[in-house]
């Protein structure tokens, strides 16, 4: 299972990356896509929408499951990855490259409240039992 050290994670299996321009990219983790299986559909939030931390804002769908995606931190949606509509399998191929949407954080400090790779690995481990 791959858990890059430079990302932040949530209990609901989203990853968040602070980009150079101050925006935050969001996707789902390697573990999450493995649980769901072959991805068949992605529904992203509309650009301009304001999200609260933990708000349900997107859906990823496989043949056997559908799962909500939650905003890791509060912010305004500034971009949605349109290429996932025609190629949802990119999430299975490289979940950390296949970002779903980008946020302009209301407060970048919220990122510090998320898990780092070590605590996320422990969280995944604990859920398996």
């Amino acid at each position: 299972m791959s858990i890059p050290a430079d990302l932040k994670y949530t209990k609901t299996h989203e990853w968040a990356r602070l980009e150079a321009d101050g925006h935050v990219s969001v996707g789902i983790t390697h573990h999450a896509q493995e649980l769901l299986g072959d991805m068949v559909f992605v529904e992203n939030p509309t650009v301009g929408r304001n999200l609260a931390a933990g708000e349900e804002c997107a859906v990823v769908e496989s043949v056997k499951a559908a799962s909500d995606v939650y905003a890791p931190i509060a912010g305004e949606v500034t971009a949605a990855n349109g290429s996932l509509e025609s190629a949802p399998e990119s999430i299975n191929k490289d979940p950390y490259a296949a970002w779903m949407f980008k946020l302009k954080p209301s407060n970048s400090a919220e990122l510090d409240g998320l898990m780092n790779a070590t605590s996320y690995a422990a969280h995944v481990e604990s859920e398996a039992h």
Partner: peptide
């Protein structure tokens, strides 16, 4: 089927 009750 992910729309349907047995999954969603």
């Amino acid at each position: 089927q992910a729309r349907e009750q047995h999954i969603r």
